[in-house]
Design a protein around this nucleic acid. Sequence first.
DNA 1: AAGCCGAGCGGTACTGAGTACCATTGTGAC
DNA 2: GTCACAATGGTACTCAGTACCGCTCGGCTT
Lengths: 254, 254
Amino acid sequence: MREDGTVTGIPVRDRLVDAALELFDERGYEQTTADDIADRAGVGRTTLFRHYRSKEDVIFPDHDRLLAAVKDRLATSSADTAIVAVTEAVRLVLLRYVEEDGRARRRYALTSRISTLRDREIASVARYQRLFREFIAEWMGPAPGAALRAELMAAAVVSAHNHVLRRWLRRDTTEPAAELDAAMAQVVALFAGPEPAAGAAGPDGGNGVGNGLGNGVGNGSGGNGNGGTAVIVLHDQRDPEYVAAAIRRALQEA
Amino acid sequence: MREDGTVTGIPVRDRLVDAALELFDERGYEQTTADDIADRAGVGRTTLFRHYRSKEDVIFPDHDRLLAAVKDRLATSSADTAIVAVTEAVRLVLLRYVEEDGRARRRYALTSRISTLRDREIASVARYQRLFREFIAEWMGPAPGAALRAELMAAAVVSAHNHVLRRWLRRDTTEPAAELDAAMAQVVALFAGPEPAAGAAGPDGGNGVGNGLGNGVGNGSGGNGNGGTAVIVLHDQRDPEYVAAAIRRALQEA
DNA sequence: AAGCCGAGCGGTACTGAGTACCATTGTGAC
DNA sequence: GTCACAATGGTACTCAGTACCGCTCGGCTT
């Protein structure tokens, strides 16, 4: 037992988060002062602001670190693995939320009610979107219309992520990772289709899986070791179910 | 001449905006207090907060009113004019900015530098996006996958708007309205194409390519008619080249 | 053992945003 | 004239966030 009555060995940072979430639930966000949180956590107000930049910060995860991780993942990619990099990077973000589980859901309950917090969350999301936009734009090159296309694609990627994340937060799904794959597939399909008339700037680049029907197949591989991810885009006139079945069979046999 | 020395008949609200923009330019946003702004405008601090909810609010336009206008425009539309409604609604927003001209550009200069203000702007944009999302979702109905599709489309619409707006703010274009039309056309083209293959949206329901190694395979495809596109995301530990070869073979045989 | 040192913490005091309340003034209606 | 009302100004308060100082504790050297 410590002098101040606290019994736990729980780190100060975590005690603060717990205290904040409890108090926000009990009396609401606005009605909870920084002093309240610090008191409940058994520390001084100064200590709170030493660990978190602001009152809001307490309940938001380390976006900085995750943002850096995403940036890293995007950076380690060659031109023909760009789509894979994006897919895995966005997956990274989703999984981080899923890991948090309870805490993520409590935060969601708060951001749904308190506009201040919702705005804060939105601002965070925008930073991810910016990262994706810059990456995709660079990948696409300076072709005319590429800037807009990159922006649209980044927005789509982030939206797909948010859509799935919210479904998981609301318990509408228990397999967020799989749904993210599906959603991302839809995003890629959206952009893999008709190019914007002029500059082709597309993902086709000779590595197409020449099946004689489709044209482009961006195939990346997570490459180095763990959990390879492959994204395959193909244009095929035949029944997609039929094609999917064929691929399924091929993978089982392989 | 008035008692307080002010010579103008300019409304208080406008004087405050001018004062704020001047001061933010002169000493920066953080270094300008609410008192400074009020003093410069020749009014009391109380009056400032009577006209604007916060210090930030002073330089942001009436998003509430514009938001309402957008909502109205969307509301007055039948099912088959939905796309027109969206296009005109987003045009409404762009034109409002263009009307502001100088003030919009000064605000842009500020939001580019000050993260607090940028976040605020982003939060505003998100409200428009939400409006569009809700409208589009209702328009699309409860079809499976429609929710995601609506979210993607709303994000695309807003991104297209922002893209053109920023180009205009940076003086990269002198015909924002025309560019917006072009951008919106691109957005519509994007979504007019391949529908997301009937039930295939989710990886559940049996269409998951259960190869026993990867877990999720999302398949979005264009079933109906025009050049079907299929996108496959798979997680597979094996050599990607090997997997690709297997798929290639399967497609040729199929 | 005594001294030293750095990290983590608590307390106090300050600035500034935003709110509540009250007093004042100007303006038009009657 | 005065009554009503709207707009303003001033004062005082709460609270977030910052700056600064002093304390304590554990580990380390000598």
